[in-house]
Design a protein around this nucleic acid. Structure first.
Lengths: 234, 234
DNA sequence: CAATAAATCGAGCGAGCGCTCGATTTACTG
DNA sequence: CAGTAAATCGAGCGCTCGCTCGATTTATTG
């Protein structure tokens, strides 16, 4: 069960920034969408690049201004504080992730085993498509304003709940041999995070997104004691 | 194979700061060890508390000074820059972790399965004993000076190599059904990190260190296709 | 108990930060 | 193409940062 993201939305910088504009149209002062989206894309792209290199806190607005070609004052047409900017990006990541993971196709969600495979594959594919966004959210969510922490925790729990449901359903139908689906889900999630957090390592090993997803799938299925997995090599 | 850390060193704040003083005796300007260790413990304890709450970058030296009761000038008797302070703490974590994981007792390292169990148990126990240290290293290692990043990557690879060796030995002796021990080790490590990174979650679920280690052990053993694991429930 | 050394202190320095706002340019409209 | 609105600009404000250094206190010694 391999996931294809194509029909699930536009995950390019422009597409995501268009969604961001939508979500914050009441606070963004630039009225014309085509201008706002293009500029947002330049700003956010710059932020992600610089922050993932040196950290969000260590990246000054002057740096962002210079690298993106948008003046200091211009930046503040899109957010009212640096913390708001952080929250806008974090919010876009968690909203997109939750939306995608809930959009499993019929043929996947019908069978728990196929569903879990699809979830793993979709998560890897999404974090691949939105790599800098995911890295940013992972690295910066913790050490920031209370609202950001709360949002991050909630988003994480939402993701975990989706995995828990799939594993629980599989256990109920006797396909997985687990007695605590929540625990199992909690152990699966860091495996998915490793794909984008330790990206350099996997690239060095020549492991691509599909290969990584496949290996995590088989690793997890064996760990869950899936029926029909006995004796299969890795 | 449960690990006991007692004989492997002193992992209290004082013990670790004594080791830190040892490693930096040429740059720390305070000559009397008992004074230096006590003060280092106050300083480092404060840093870990504040940084784990709000991030290292967002924690000012004035804050550290006020909270630890050591004056601004006094702090600089122990390090020559804020970055150096960061490196001292990161170095202490990676040195301690590498040392401990290499100290498996005879009866553990003789058998690969027991060895892997001991490694998991020891890592959980160590991160439990040094919780704020591990959290700090995990959260702060990335977005900082090049030297820090390099050191963090190297330390991580060293840890992974130890796990890889145990799994490879198990595969060689036919105890594990894996064909890429490095990949398996890379998937085990995030499970160990989750224990301290997502500490609040596990506490909320009432899972203690021993229970967590035991569950990771059985999860991993099944995922590695360990002989004799077929049909065992979680 | 001087004399010397060790340890501690905190006001002050220059620099860079997030953020503002009046001036200016650009784009649209009748 | 004048007039208006939208978008853009960047110097400057107040503030806090990492860090220094001469003055001061505390401990050690002959």
């Amino acid at each position: 069960m391999q996931a294809t993201l194509n029909e699930l939305g536009d995950f390019s910088m422009e597409g995501l920034c268009a969604a961001m504009l939508e979500r914050h149209r009441d606070t963004i002062r630039v009225r014309k969408p085509h201008i706002a989206v293009a500029k947002l894309a330049r700003i956010v792209g710059t932020i992600l690049t610089l922050s993932n290199r040196q950290g969000f806190h260590a990246t000054s607005l002057r740096e962002i201004s210079a690298a993106s070609g948008v003046s200091m004052g211009g930046l503040y047409a899109y957010f009212d504080s640096k913390d708001t900017l952080l929250m806008m990006i974090l919010g876009q990541v968690s909203q997109t992730r939750t939306r995608v993971l809930q959009a499993a196709p019929e043929e996947a969600s019908a069978d728990p085993v196929a569903h879990l495979r699809w979830l793993i594959s979709a998560h890897v594919a999404l974090s691949e498509a939105m790599l800098p966004w995911f890295v940013f959210a992972f690295m910066e969510a913790k050490s920031f304003p209370p609202a950001g922490r709360r949002a991050a925790v909630e988003s994480e729990e939402a993701t975990e709940a989706i995995f828990t449901a799939a594993i629980a359903e599989g256990a109920r139908r006797g396909r997985f041999a687990v007695d605590d689906p929540g625990f199992a889900a909690a152990l699966v999630k860091p495996l998915l995070q490793d794909w984008y957090v330790k990206r350099a390592k996997w690239r060095r090993r020549g492991v691509g997104a599909d290969a990584y997803a496949a290996r995590v799938q088989s690793f997890v299925e064996r760990a869950l004691g899936m029926d029909g997995m006995e004796g299969k090599g890795e």
